[in-house]
Design a protein around this nucleic acid. Structure first.
Lengths: 149, 149
DNA sequence: GTCAGATGATTGCACATGCAACTGACTCCA
DNA sequence: TGGAGTCAGTTGCATGTGCAATCATCTGAC
């Protein structure tokens, strides 16, 4: 129990539950979105983040951080999404190296169409399974984990 | 707030914290294990699960479920690990289609060597960031999420 | 006994990802 | 002004993954 080389029962349970919950949620939400609208959860996440930025645009590096994605991964995802017309690229006027990814009108429409499906999924599989108190504590606890050095 | 088409502030926080925490943990634990011993977190997870099975062996399909991995993904992972001698395959005597994956002696040694590093990482980045009460509640809440239909 | 259908595992293929190397652009100091 | 060092983004390459198709085996009905 106290041996730092091992985890206690509760610690192990919490650890495995975290792994299991995340995997299951990501998977089922992606499938639901695909089935309903043919759009991927990953594209949807890009659209969500961009739609929250001023002017719907964001520098590539910042976007990669917000999405917890590597730079090269983001380059290619933006490639694909630009190909489908969901986002556009724009050079940064003040820094010739920089590029903004920007959500397009078509991207906003796709986002609007997908959001009800996505939110319903998050509710059904996550929010509604928990009480308000559990949710609040979960948020607090996991924010500490995500932010810890 | 009550509009089922949107998430409340707290719900959104909890949701994003879950995504962020999981991604960060998986990434940092994998890097630590790679740096310390050159073994991947994924192989390590296979070894953990197998070592907990009676006789250190498990049917492929069951193992895939326990690891939250697709069947084909598991086939290939076991291929690789068998190549490194960490696990072995054995046909099931009572069902000619079935295959057992079994942890080898070398696999147990690798597991023993990696466990302190892995456990220390889980402690540092997850367990120690939270109180005992938070951990218990987290476990309970996330188990509900992982198990919900 | 045999054949149709179900089941466990594997393979073909396409695709998303990360790391490392690269390119072009910026900064800053001599 | 010019050149070294840094930085943003992209590309080459290797790898890991899932879905669909496939193969071998089992099961049950006749």
């Amino acid at each position: 129990m106290d041996d730092p080389r091992w985890l206690s029962q509760d610690e192990m349970r919490a650890w495995r539950a975290l792994l299991g919950a995340q995997h299951r949620l990501h998977r089922v939400l992606d499938l639901e979105l695909q089935a309903a609208l043919g759009t991927s959860l990953q594209d949807h996440e890009v659209l969500i983040v961009l739609s929250e930025q001023p002017d719907g645009a964001c520098r590539m590096a910042d976007l990669a951080d917000l999405l917890a994605l590597s730079r090269s991964g983001l380059t290619r995802r933006v490639d694909r999404m630009a190909g489908s017309g969901l986002v556009s690229r724009r050079r940064c006027s003040s820094d010739g190296r920089g590029v903004f990814a920007r959500i397009t009108q078509s991207g906003r429409q796709a986002l609007e169409a997908a959001t009800p499906v996505h939110v319903a999924g998050v509710r059904r599989h996550f929010v509604d399974v928990l009480s308000a108190g559990e949710l609040a504590l979960l948020a607090e606890a996991l924010e500490k984990v995500a932010a810890s050095p």
